[in-house]
Design a protein around this nucleic acid. Structure first.
Lengths: 230, 230
DNA sequence: ACGCCGAATATGTAGCTACATATTAAAGGC
DNA sequence: GCCTTTAATATGTAGCTACATATTCGGCGT
């Protein structure tokens, strides 16, 4: 509509281009929001909306009174979508399967107790997710019986602990770790690979309102890869 | 100040709590923004600001006229900060080092050509980043001479290609892949580990304005892990 | 009953005022 | 010259109007 200036995304792109071509060099201070608004022919709130996007992308740093500066060492943020395993398997056109290998009530090992900040006995669940009948992801999971007592009554042979928790105990915080590991005898048996095979491991700890929910070490099939686009 | 309703972050938290306690169950439609504003005693734009945050977190899905729904399968987004290697090494209290192993002008292999969408001869650079004199990350990199012709004149023994590119050719798009690999003879020699050792591999392709900049396969030291908190 | 079209609707956005607040810089005293 | 205090400043936010637009649903015709 006539009379309206450029949109917030057009402003973001203009400013991003100036960062890329070094009109605004790393470490440099940008003009005040109000001055940019005058120059670009839009409102200060439009500039602010654009700047928030650049801030979230890790390109600039904003301070009240202090103004806006281009980050000298831009932090590169890669966002990976971590899908529900079943959705991932079926989305790739495979048949999903699930096998409960064991469930016990036991004291968590020190590393798990540290990660969750709890050491009371927990429910330990070992299970395998299958794609077309072959191991796709093996998981070794500890679930807090203090936070999720009702898990004790769930038939985890019929439904994966993860699927149950997603529906009954969503988390508000999750700690993630990714690393490579050579399959030991147990991993090798679970994933049906030769011992020593290089596997990607995803470790996850989830919490709700500061209370621990679950800790899980997921072993992925050989060739498994996580992808993202920044 | 009196007369002002709750802030956008308080609204976001209220709505998030209702998603978590299943007042709004997965797949359910949320009340209209205007109705929520009336109920919570704030402006519609405040509700919108809160909703945008929930949308970005992958918890809800917004459509004009269609309203807001709770995602039935919440996509779990994990954002990893991928630091500059030098900063990572020095930040951990180690001494950073860099060694250029080779540089050649060659035709990229098919997988690289596909990832970059280009097949003209490129500059191939193999280098190692060190922490306290030991291999920390080994990289095998292809740089487009069409997009970055000036790299041909850069002394890559004195400065890593990555450091140079960050300053002179920032990207506006980056494709990332993470996977585990058993060290072959070359990886083993580069990283000074036994062949077959499980290593985390980070593959990255960057672009500017649709043109390819570089493709790199980075081999990390044993024990290297990426972490994130959602 | 089905398909198409148009109106209604719910969210998205531009811009504005007024107020809030974190931060910076200048002034004054020692 | 240094330290403290205070005022100024640049960004952050709440709320509002008006307009934009993607989507949905109802009505009408066949």
């Amino acid at each position: 509509m006539t009379g309206r200036g450029p949109g917030w995304s057009a402003v973001r792109d203009r400013l991003h281009a100036r960062i890329l071509d070094r009109t605004y060099a790393p470490g440099a201070k940008l003009p005040r929001d109000a001055d940019l608004a005058d120059e670009l022919g839009c409102a200060r709130s439009t500039v602010q909306r654009a700047m928030r996007a650049l801030d979230e992308a890790g390109l600039v740093e904003r301070r009240r009174r202090g103004g806006t500066t281009v980050r000298a060492d831009p932090v590169r943020r890669a966002t990976f979508d971590i899908p529900v395993i079943r959705r991932e398997v079926e989305g790739a056109g495979h048949r999903y399967g699930y096998v409960l290998r064991s469930r016990d009530r036991a004291e968590p090992p020190p590393a798990v107790a540290r990660a969750l900040g709890a050491s009371a006995p927990m429910l330990r669940v070992r299970a395998t997710h299958l794609a077309d009948g072959r191991p796709y992801m093996g998981e070794d999971r500890w679930i807090s019986l203090a936070t999720v007592p009702e898990i004790a009554a769930v038939d985890l042979a019929a439904e994966s602990a993860n699927a149950w928790l997603v529906r009954h105990r969503p988390f508000d915080r999750c700690d993630l770790g990714l690393y490579a590991s050579a399959a030991d005898a147990e991993d090798a048996a679970v994933m049906d690979v030769a011992p020593g095979t290089a596997l990607l491991i995803v470790e996850r700890a989830t919490f709700i309102a500061g209370a621990p929910i679950t800790w899980v070490r997921a072993v992925t099939a050989p060739g498994y890869r996580l992808t993202a686009t920044v």
